[in-house]
Simulated scan of single mutants.
Amino acid sequence: MTLIPHSREWYARLARELGGYRHPWARVLDGPDPELTFDALLAERLGPAVRVLEAGCGHGPDAARFGPLAGRWAAFDAVPELVAQARLNAPHADIHGWNAKGDIPDPLRGPFDLIVSRRGPTSVILRLPELAAPGAEFLYVGPRLDVPQVPERLAAVGWEVRGEWRVSVRARVPTRQDWATRCEWMNEPERLPEWDTHTGPDGLPYREERYVVLAGPPA
């Protein structure tokens, strides 16, 4: 059965086959990982008094890595298979099933000092007024140089963008199947012919892009 990319069933298959929310294609970066900007901004905001909510935690890599640096690390994901894996990978974190819509589960009501999302659901932005403590911040990283719904939704809830970073690193995919898998993941079928026209001896060069945004309520 062909699954719709980024459907709940599609993510569940990734969890079963790859052991988590992982990119199912090979790539080689020719520079630093563009998500290091997000990592640095996140790490400098953590501390024993900071309460963190992670939206779209996947199999829990950030909860496992950064959770011990926070006073509390709560997280959610909409895919039950990923929630189960995250609980195993980050047993110290408080992880629940939710899709950022409908009633907020009691354990996720907060308030939280920092709400983070690594390529997770932007729908959580619309819930920031309900989840955030006074003076809280929102930190997000997305898979393209522009993710228009992020500033749009921040404006809709009256939060201000305090910083934006657009990071682009040259990368290569080694095989045609890797490129096809990436195009499916990114919903970019129009880029499939690039393999036939731009491939070199080391594979197909492209740009690995990230958009990082830091936001908060009006001062």
Rank of each mutant, 00 (worst) to 15 (best):
M1K: 06
M1N: 15
I4H: 04
I4K: 06
P5Y: 11
P5F: 10
H6R: 11
E9S: 04
E9I: 14
W10E: 00
R13Q: 07
R13K: 07
L14K: 03
L14N: 08
L14R: 03
R16E: 10
R16N: 14
R16K: 15
E17I: 13
L18H: 12
L18W: 13
G19K: 00
G20F: 02
G20K: 02
P24S: 06
W25H: 05
A26D: 09
V28Y: 03
V28I: 12
V28N: 10
L29W: 03
D30C: 09
L36E: 04
F38M: 06
R45Y: 05
R45Q: 01
P48K: 00
R51H: 05
V52T: 09
E54L: 02
G56K: 00
C57G: 05
G60A: 08
P61F: 06
A64W: 04
F66R: 10
F66C: 03
G67K: 00
L69Q: 10
L69E: 08
G71A: 13
A75L: 11
A75W: 05
F76V: 08
P80R: 07
L82A: 00
V83H: 01
V83I: 14
A84W: 12
A86F: 11
R87T: 08
L88M: 11
A90W: 03
H92K: 06
H92G: 09
H96T: 06
N99Q: 02
K101D: 11
G102S: 01
P105L: 04
D106H: 15
D113V: 05
L114Y: 04
I115H: 05
V116M: 02
R118N: 04
G120Q: 03
G120T: 05
P121K: 13
I125T: 11
L126T: 00
R127C: 12
P129M: 04
L131C: 06
L131T: 02
A132V: 02
A132S: 01
A132T: 03
A133L: 06
A133R: 03
A136H: 12
L139V: 02
Y140E: 14
P143G: 09
D146P: 11
Q149D: 07
E152G: 01
L154E: 04
G158A: 10
E160R: 15
V161E: 15
V161P: 11
V167K: 15
S168F: 14
S168H: 14
R170G: 07
A171E: 00
R172N: 08
V173R: 00
P174N: 07
R176Y: 11
Q177A: 03
D178F: 00
D178Y: 01
W179D: 14
T181Y: 10
R182W: 05
C183L: 15
E184V: 08
W185H: 07
P189W: 08
P189E: 07
E190F: 15
E190H: 13
R191W: 07
E194C: 00
W195C: 05
D196P: 09
D196A: 15
H198G: 09
D202K: 04
G203I: 08
P205T: 04
P205H: 13
P205Y: 07
E209V: 09
R210W: 01
Y211R: 12
V213K: 10
P217V: 13
